[in-house]
Design a binder for these strands. Structure first.
Lengths: 188, 188
DNA sequence: CGTGCACTTGATTGAAGTCAAGCGCTGTGG
DNA sequence: CCACAGCGCTTGACTTCAATCAAGTGCACG
């Protein structure tokens, strides 16, 4: 649980008494590669912390699979679209490597936030960073070419190419697999 | 100040003692049409509440003007990009009608959030709704045609066409003025 | 009565999607 | 041990949506 605690403290420090209450509502999962952690069961209202491994959040939209997020070691991640009841049907999480991760239910998080000011603050900061990421991604989709988005991704997550199939990366970048392939061939 | 209080209470109720402290840091502005409220002065880290009127937040990106948001009566609005120090240079706010509005500095908001749990919660909820909006908009940009985005806007803000020049609406929708014009001519 | 602004219309271009075929592994059954 | 099936990725031809560039219209106001 050390890595989780560290990551939390980095966002916003928690006094001991509420830290214990908070940590107790996280669930640990140790799963193999290609494991489907969540599947269309309506319980997508969770926040995750990936201690080690690679995971992918995706959902279906008009029979197409959309990769909403790819998380790697020591990242928090959530399906923004379903954490806040705008639930797209069919949310799923799927590991791409053997992974260890923690999850917390939204309801538990909110209950503790009501009870403890520092947890409310932590939550606010987490939502804020999600918002910033969301804006950056929107900006990227709106104003950058697929080429630039790809280069930005390589920059932000070096090594992702080795660990994640291109088809998922393409979907995450919002382009087709063919387009991604062409981007990769034109620039070395 | 009644409309502001009402709008705040609707998001998250505030006990009297912190409500007074909170309200005291809001600034009132009563400005004519075509008034530039903020202009490239680096003080874009503000949240606004538009009591009455129409306002537009925009910034410059490679010499082009990007309309980030158009707010109408009784809406909160902020430049997400600059409220959280990802500051794009040259943020500006501009009224499109005579308007009455309130503003609060980010620093004041944060200070009071630290002091009062209910204000922290209010802030968290506001950031959360921004995040949801941001996601919806991203989704819209990524998966919908310009046509569909336009129709969605008409739905969400009927009357906006009468009150806001098409060039701003086009920029807000992420298309050129010409494209918007064609969209409008093809469908009634 | 022009000058400019808000918008429209037309012609051309470009980025990415779609459909379709092909290539090179890897793993499994005969 | 080979053969072929399937997956992951590439390549090619064609289409589509929206950007760009370039005129043109019509109205508002000084």
């Amino acid at each position: 649980m050390d890595l989780l605690i560290q990551a939390l403290e980095k966002i916003s420090p928690l006094p001991d008494e509420c830290r214990d209450a908070f940590l107790s509502v996280w669930q640990y999962h140790d799963v193999p590669k290609d494991h489907t952690l969540l599947r269309e069961n309506g319980i997508g209202d969770q926040l995750f912390f990936l201690e080690k491994g690679v995971a992918r959040i995706y959902y279906h939209k008009n029979d197409k699979e959309i990769t909403e997020w790819i998380a790697m070691d020591r990242q928090f991640f959530l399906s923004i679209t379903s954490f806040f009841e705008r639930t797209p049907s069919h949310l799923a999480i799927h590991t791409l490597e053997p992974s260890q991760l923690y999850s917390i239910r939204q309801a538990d998080f909110l209950r503790l936030a009501d009870q403890f000011h520092p947890i409310e603050k932590l939550l606010r900061k987490m939502v804020t960073s999600s918002l910033i990421l969301s804006q950056q991604r929107m900006d990227s989709i709106q104003f950058e070419s697929a080429q630039q988005r790809y280069e930005r991704l390589l920059d932000a997550s070096p090594g992702i190419i080795q660990r994640v199939p291109l088809s998922y990366i393409a979907s995450f970048l919002g382009v087709t697999l063919e387009t991604l392939s062409r981007i990769r061939s034109h620039r070395h």
